[in-house]
Amino acid sequence: MPYILKDSLFSFILSVIGIILLGSVPFMFTGMSFNTGSYVDGIGELFKSMMKPAEIMYFTTSGKYPLFPSMWDIFSYSLTILFSAFFMALILALIFAILIFMLPSRLKDKIRVFSFMFESIPDVLIAISMQFFIIWFFKETNILLFQIVSLYDQKTYFVPIFCLTVLPTLLILRILLLNMEEEYGKQYIDTAKSKGMGSFRILWRHVLPNTLLSVFHQSRNILWFMLSNLLMVEFLFNIYGVTTLVREMGNPAIFTISMLMLFVPMFLFFTALRIFTYKWVGEK
């Protein structure tokens, strides 16, 4: 346990430094040429402006506003979408995995063999198809299913969360399917079977918890992947979230602050997962 905390603190500090270093990269280029001196100056400048967050301004079409406190609103909106999509993906993937395991084994094997195709669908395709579908449905029946495009003060939740959920669900489902198969080959399953346990009980009590561990191990990659999705979804549905803010401002200070604010909850989430798995199975 102390090891985990120490290690997490270490990587926390380094990641923060890394994000600040990345945030000041635009200072490195004057035109097209590298300039190391101005990079070092730029880091200092970035640091100075981040020390005084009250003075950072952002622009919208209607005018110029201070970044805080409206930043909290924008930020919590993006974070809500991101994490609710992640948990929904997790739950949906679990349900699908259980359903697939109920299928006859010939079908099950086929799904597993072709599960790698799940990863091939670009997020852009899903978001655009969703927009087409809603527009088409509106044209056909004159019912607007959901508010597609969010205006500045109107927040839509359902459609962006749905678009963000689809791909991670497939990704987690694939991880679950592959690991479940591996888990079923282990000998403790034979023991459980020979003790007369029902197959659903084995799946629920033994196989699922063990495969969930591998999902936790992959959670960083999954969330990173979802961040790219978030960028696309916010762009395509015209949502004013963190990535939109960064995209439109292009200001190093806003970039760094936004990325740090995204980083902190994600990092806390991973650390919590790490402590949780440590308590559970004793893995560091």
Binding site: L14, G18, L22, N221, L227
Partner: peptide, 25 residues
Amino acid sequence: VIKGLGQSFYYIPSALLILFIVGPI
């Protein structure tokens, strides 16, 4: 140290990072 610094890439969507750097240029 290098590993820790490399981790910071996992919290930034790469398209956004490229847009951010390339934008002014």
